[in-house]
Design a protein around this nucleic acid. Structure first.
Length: 198
DNA sequence: AAAATAAACAACCGCCGTCAG
DNA sequence: CCTGACGGCGGTTGTTTATTT
């Protein structure tokens, strides 16, 4: 069933820490443990729960996927708009941006940005359909100048890149969310955990 | 229909600030 | 006061899935 590549099964020692994709079993353990004990103190939690994972790994898994309030499914048009606006203000402050998108995680937003948005800004520039041909003057949207924002401080709007005014020109993926084939849904995991109380 | 390529996604890594001992 | 553990963050990489040739 699982074909995990590399890493684990090895000659002499079984690994004391697991890496790579989480299995359903591990998810269940984590969910169950947190349901009964709460979150926090991740390293301890990982040990107590019997997971062969680092605390960091557990935390990441929980925050990004298992937490009951994470929202899966495609980013909506509204969400994408908001991401673009906030990114225009704050740059790659993903966690900060994520705070304004309920149920979305910094990781997801970051991924979405890099895979779906950034390339359009780079290749098409701010005016994919309009005619005026002034080019994007390196306005930003590149990951390298993050520090520019820092000098300005938190709430200040440092710049508004030209694409911000052309949001409707960007292809927005899907209006709704299609959330079908996500193996056992987190929902399922949650219902499963009800069977396991300790 | 299969192989190649690209895109999307999940997770890890290293750095850094904070706080307890 | 110094040191180390911890957690949060952003960048990056590895793997899976979709699309194109």
């Amino acid at each position: 069933m699982d074909k995990m590549k590399g890493g684990i099964s090895n000659s002499s020692q079984e690994p004391e820490v697991r890496k790579g994709p989480w299995t359903m079993e591990e998810d269940l353990i984590l969910i169950n443990y947190i349901a009964n004990h709460g979150e926090g103190v991740w390293n301890t939690l990982a040990r107590s729960a019997g997971l062969k994972r680092t605390g960091k790994s557990c935390r990441l898994r929980w925050l990004n996927y298992l937490r009951p309030d994470v929202r899966r499914g495609n980013i909506t048009a509204d969400e994408q708009l908001l991401i673009m606006e906030l990114h225009a203000r704050w740059g790659n402050r993903w966690s900060k941006i994520a705070k304004h998108l309920p149920g979305r995680t910094d990781n997801e937003i970051k991924n979405h940005w890099r895979t779906r948005i950034q390339k359009h800004i780079k290749q098409a520039g701010p005016y994919p359909r309009q005619n005026s041909n002034h080019e994007l003057n390196q306005n930003e949207a590149s990951t390298s100048n993050t520090h520019l924002y820092e000098e300005v401080g938190e709430g200040m709007e440092y710049y508004l890149p030209s694409y911000a005014g052309n949001l409707e020109a960007f292809p927005v993926p899907l209006p709704a969310e299609s959330n079908e084939n996500f193996w056992p849904n987190v929902e399922d995991l949650w219902s499963m955990q009800l069977l396991n109380n300790d």
